[in-house]
């Protein structure tokens, strides 16, 4: 009797706990879908009003309620592209140093220091970028760039105009610092998957360190590296606060990297609470939806590539 009751209680509590975990799992699963649905709902008025013109219009005018996303999309892509151009070689360099030539006792502390860089909140990079990096660039680097490229046909356009300090270039540099630890961490992890015997074989036939890295390590980890770069790119595209501080928030497309611009996330962060009128708010949510779609595609691609590496390691 006692035994039966206890067993029944066990079975009941077992079932309750199991269902509880299942519900939580489904909740996590539906979160992404819920985000998508709510953004589409919020963005619907703007989608109806502007249609596909939203993607190709540069003007962003709250007074006449004409909104187009071309300038923020352009700014987002350009800043992220330049950031990756800077962060990928440096991140790979750090990862190669950490896995191949760094003295053993220093590997952990240096690796941890780079990871700490990833832990520093976005807003800290923003305030640092605005008060330290921007004035520094304005007085030293930007005048030098203007002087250097001012007379070369195509490049002079990239570095035209006065050195404001804040602008697309500064935002890109801050972004580069912020994605650097992500690129480093993933590259280091995939470099460590290279079997030691492969590397030793290469050293055995007389390869130099760099030849081992270039001809063995990198080809062996190519897919994982691409995944890591895409992961970093996903971060860069969605990064908000740091960019908001230093990009200058100008809704126009300018060839010059020294000119102020804007990105999708910076536009939302700057204007959302001040947006009056449903169409204005809805347009900002539509911008958010675009950002969501762009980053989701890239992150899903990155995860898929990294997941394939994992599968490959298991088999």
């Amino acid at each position: 009797m006692e035994r039966q009751r206890t067993l029944a209680r066990f079975r009941r509590s077992d079932k309750i706990f199991r269902n509880l975990t299942f519900v939580a799992a489904i909740l996590v699963l539906s979160l992404l879908g819920a985000v998508a649905v709510s953004l589409v709902t919020g963005a619907w008025p703007a989608m109806k009003e502007f249609g596909f013109d939203f993607l190709t219009t540069e003007s962003w005018n709250p007074v006449t309620e004409k909104f187009g996303a071309l300038a923020p999309i352009y700014g987002t892509l350009v800043t992220s592209f330049i950031a990756m151009l800077i962060a990928v070689p440096i991140g790979l360099g750090i990862a190669i140093f950490l896995t191949e030539s760094c003295p053993m006792p220093l590997r952990r502390p240096i690796g941890a220091a780079i990871e700490l860089l990833a832990g520093i909140p976005s807003i800290i990079f923003g305030i640092w970028g605005l008060f330290v990096l921007a004035p520094l660039l304005q007085t030293t680097v930007q005048p030098a760039l203007i002087a250097l490229f001012g007379n070369i046909p195509v490049l002079s356009g990239l570095f035209a105009g006065p050195p404001y300090g804040i602008g697309v270039l500064t935002a890109s540099l801050i972004l580069a610092v912020m994605v650097l630890p992500f690129v480093t961490a993933v590259s280091r992890d995939v470099f460590e998957t290279v079997p030691t015997s492969l590397k030793e074989a290469a050293y055995g036939i007389g390869c130099t360190r760099w030849e081992v890295v270039r001809n063995v390590v990198i080809p062996h980890t190519r897919v994982g590296l691409i995944g890591g770069v895409m992961l970093g790119l996903g971060r860069a595209l969605g990064e908000t606060m740091a960019v908001t501080f230093v990009i200058g928030n100008a809704h126009r497309i300018s060839m010059s990297l020294l000119a102020p611009g804007t990105t999708i996330s910076a536009t939302i962060a700057n204007e959302f609470t001040e947006a009056d009128g449903d169409l204005y708010t809805s347009s900002l949510i539509l911008l958010g939806l675009l950002l969501f779609l762009i980053t989701m595609t890239i992150l899903a691609g990155a995860r898929f590539l990294l997941w394939r590496i994992d599968q490959g390691m298991k088999s």
């Binding site: 996590v28 992404l32 709510s38 996903g234 990064e239 996330s265 950002l291 969501f292 980053t295």
Partner: peptide, 18 residues
């Protein structure tokens, strides 16, 4: 796991909008 990994690096401003 796939969805969760994507959420892990989803832009936080989009979560604010949500």
């Amino acid at each position: 796991r796939f969805i969760n990994d994507i959420l892990l690096s989803a832009p936080s401003i989009v979560i604010g909008l949500f």
